[in-house]
């Protein structure tokens, strides 16, 4: 029953989401941030988007989520997606925890009684299930990050786009969030995860798409990525060298 929480809205349709980025370019003014970026995720895997600072990871996520439109190229999904997006800087409405979750669900046209039922179920994943009427903005950073994950899940997404959801978190909250992500993935939710944390990547990732200077420098499975990547930039990145 508890696993129902993670099931995407199109559960009966068993094949998971595949993301195809087709020659995406994006620039701020004259500065090219993303340069003819192309990749295709492997279905049913937790995909990690990695790369040095300024590689265009966050921007890539924003384009995939539809917040930004690429100047050139296309994002193609193999089917209709419902995206749960967790930005780097988590923002909540000036409302209670319950209202924040309910608002997101209302946007996706959930029925009133379903909203109530689902929120009371999903909030059990947290340690503030009795504080639904508290302001979401008054939660600690860790709890806010957790609530942001919950908010992205509450709409029954079939694709999760997570931008460093565990930055600044202690091991306790990190493990809670990682467990949630793993379960969601097992229930058929496609996960695309941005992080710098190599240990977390080792724990969670199935495949890694490595960006450098707005282009895909490497796209490989976890084992290959860490042990014998063909890409020099990946090897430098892992060993902590500055990429040129």
């Amino acid at each position: 029953m508890i696993n129902d929480i993670y099931k995407p809205f199109d559960n009966q349709n068993s094949n998971p989401v595949e993301i195809t980025a087709n020659n995406i370019s994006f620039r701020y003014g004259k500065k090219v941030i993303i340069d003819r970026l192309s990749f295709k995720t492997t279905e049913n895997k937790i995909s990690f988007l990695m790369g040095p600072n300024g590689a265009g990871k966050t921007l890539c996520l924003k384009i995939l989520s539809g917040i930004l439109k690429p100047d050139k190229g296309k994002v193609i999904f193999n089917k209709r997606v419902r995206i749960g997006y967790v930005p780097q800087k988590v923002i909540f409405l000036r409302r209670s925890i319950y209202e924040n979750l309910a608002f997101t669900m209302k946007v996706f046209k959930f029925q009133k009684n379903e909203i109530k039922k689902r929120i009371s179920n999903i909030i059990k994943l947290t340690d503030f299930e009795n504080k639904l009427s508290m302001s979401a903005r008054k939660l600690s950073i860790g709890k806010q990050q957790l609530l942001a994950i919950i908010r992205s899940l509450v709409i029954k997404p079939n694709l999760l786009l997570l931008d460093e959801p565990c930055s600044n978190l202690d091991p306790h909250y990190t493990s809670i969030i990682e467990a949630i992500i793993k379960k969601a993935s097992r229930q058929g939710v496609k996960v695309l995860f941005v992080t710098h944390d190599l240990l977390q990547t080792k724990r969670l990732a199935d495949e890694i798409i490595f960006l450098n200077k707005g282009r895909v420098a490497d796209h490989s499975e976890k084992g290959i990525f860490f042990k014998n990547s063909k890409s020099k930039s990946v090897r430098n990145y892992i060993s902590g060298k500055l990429l040129k």
């Binding site: 989520s65 539809g66 917040i67 923002i91 409405l93 000036r94 409302r95 997101t104």
Partner: peptide, 25 residues
């Protein structure tokens, strides 16, 4: 300015965005 990204990621309509910021303010 704070809400923009969230509202856009949820594809909240223009009219609803106006109502939301008015209500929250």
């Amino acid at each position: 300015f704070e809400y923009e990204e969230m509202l856009k990621s949820l594809r909240v309509s223009f009219r609803d965005s106006i109502l939301i910021i008015l209500w929250d303010a």
